[in-house]
Design a protein around this nucleic acid. Structure first.
Length: 339
DNA sequence: TGCCAGAGAATCTGGTCTAT
DNA sequence: ATAGACCAGATTCTCTGGCA
């Protein structure tokens, strides 16, 4: 039943069916599909009509055999962080404007899951992978990057050779937070981080800690880092303990809005005035920070630029660039009522 | 003679089937 | 058990015919 275009069992419609229906060659259909040079308007119209009529969709697997699938995987650590959708949306827009389709995978904050998702993306012949805040080490990323072009957001590894990184300048962002606090007259400025355990220096929170410590030193002030339990654990009690400490600082720079928003909430509900008793500066400028009742001063990482730049860098890799690119995006502080 | 639209055939990868 | 043929469905290279 090969010469019947649509069979009772709905056999897959291929480029050959379209060519047959339009009365042209397979190569001509391919040219129309790729918007390639040397196609008359009449031929294009005929082919497009057949594509529409037969409801044809090109096979990604077959395209993969010839090189490109025009599919990119976006692997994200998890979805509960409100900062991430902005990055994903921006990357997705940029990729789609350049003819790529993106498929999203969720790593659920676990290295084995991330690794298996990257492997699936390689197996499905995706052209590249954009990874946001990976848990897996740079060493493992180096290994995968030999098999597929990789660009990573929120992973500081300026010496990586086989993959690219795009980050907010987290050290500078932390320094800006300290600068804002100092300029508003605060001296007793602590940082609320989290227990990094044996995390490598690629982790953004550690970069922010380093930036904070450096900036405090530069301002001639004593730094004081208070660490909440690891990210996976419940930190409500630890936040309450921090608020109840006798020598609570006058201002606190929190490593992320993920903890800064619960902190501002806990402070207000327990009668601590923000900023009169405690000034709070967060990081990420997540949508929650901007809600008037929250009003959290926060360091903005420029999510749109992160997503845009990472896509650009990844497409460069896909196009064959060999030398690594490591991009830092300028952060800025969004001032609100919490300072 | 040269350009352009379009056709034919080679080619890609990785798995399955068939012959030895 | 192994080697080689074959297949999927695209892209791409090379060639041809028509026309200015």
């Amino acid at each position: 039943m090969k010469n019947q275009i649509v069979t009772a069992t709905q056999e897959r419609i291929t480029i050959r069916h379209v060519a047959q229906d339009a009365g042209v060659s397979v190569a001509a259909v391919s040219k129309v599909l790729r918007n390639a040079y040397g196609v008359s308007e009449a031929l294009r119209t005929k082919v497009e009509a057949s594509i529409e009529k037969l409801n044809y969709r090109p096979s990604v697997a077959a395209r993969g055999m010839r090189g490109r699938t025009y599919t990119v995987g976006i692997l994200v650590i998890e979805l509960s962080n409100p900062f991430l959708p902005g990055v994903i949306e921006s990357a997705n827009t940029m990729l789609s404007e350049n003819g790529y389709k993106s498929l999203i995978g969720i790593g659920r904050s676990a290295s084995p899951i991330e690794a298996s998702m990257i492997e699936s993306m390689i197996d499905n012949r995706m052209d590249g992978v954009l990874i946001i805040a990976p848990r897996i080490s740079g060493k493992v990323l180096e290994r995968y990057a030999r098999q597929i072009p990789i660009a990573v957001i929120a992973h500081h590894e300026p010496h990586a050779q086989t993959y690219d990184t795009v980050n907010s300048d987290d050290r500078k962002g932390a320094a800006l937070a300290v600068e804002v606090a100092v300029s508003q007259g605060y001296r007793d400025i602590a940082m609320l981080g989290y227990d990094l355990l044996d995390s490598p220096s690629t982790v953004v929170a550690l970069q922010r800690e380093m930036g904070y410590v450096e900036a405090m030193k530069q301002a001639g002030l004593e730094s004081r880092v208070i660490r909440l339990p690891p990210v996976a654990e419940n930190r409500e009690a630890a936040i309450r303990d921090f608020l109840a400490t006798a020598n609570r600082p006058r201002a606190v720079f929190v490593w992320s809005d993920l903890d800064a928003v619960p902190l501002i909430n806990a402070a207000r509900t327990s009668g601590i005035r923000v900023p009169e008793d405690l000034a709070i500066i967060g990081y990420d400028n997540s949508p929650m920070a901007a809600i008037p009742l929250v009003g959290l001063t926060s360091v903005d990482q420029n999510a749109v630029e992160l997503g845009r730049m990472a896509s650009e860098v990844l497409m460069g890799r896909i196009d064959g660039r060999q030398e690594a690119r490591h991009v830092l995006i300028e952060p800025h502080v969004e001032l609100r009522g919490s300072t």
